[in-house]
């Protein structure tokens, strides 16, 4: 597993901000870079799946711990 290039903290933010902030953050990364996102909005779980499906970026990891959802997205190459 390669290292995360950037972590985006969107804890506390609500729809559609987690994906909007992610879309903005991923622009600054290079193809293949990993972006880690930390969120607390339960709606972010289906939304990140939809977002990656639509944008072609890859959702490589998804987990939940103590109400914090963690996503790792690989920027499409």
């Amino acid at each position: 597993m390669s290292a995360v290039a950037k972590t985006l903290d969107v804890k506390g933010l609500n729809c559609p901000l987690p994906i909007v902030k992610t879309a903005q953050a991923i622009k600054e990364l290079a193809a293949g870079d990993l972006l880690e996102i930390l969120a607390t909005d339960p709606g972010a779980v289906p939304d990140f799946n939809a977002w990656t499906k639509s944008t072609g970026n890859e959702l490589v990891e998804q987990s939940e711990e103590a109400g914090v959802y963690r996503f790792v997205v690989k920027k499409k190459g």
Partner: peptide, 8 residues
């Protein structure tokens, strides 16, 4: 904003 974030 969601649409734009989705790459639309």
């Amino acid at each position: 904003t969601a649409g734009a974030a989705m790459g639309m």
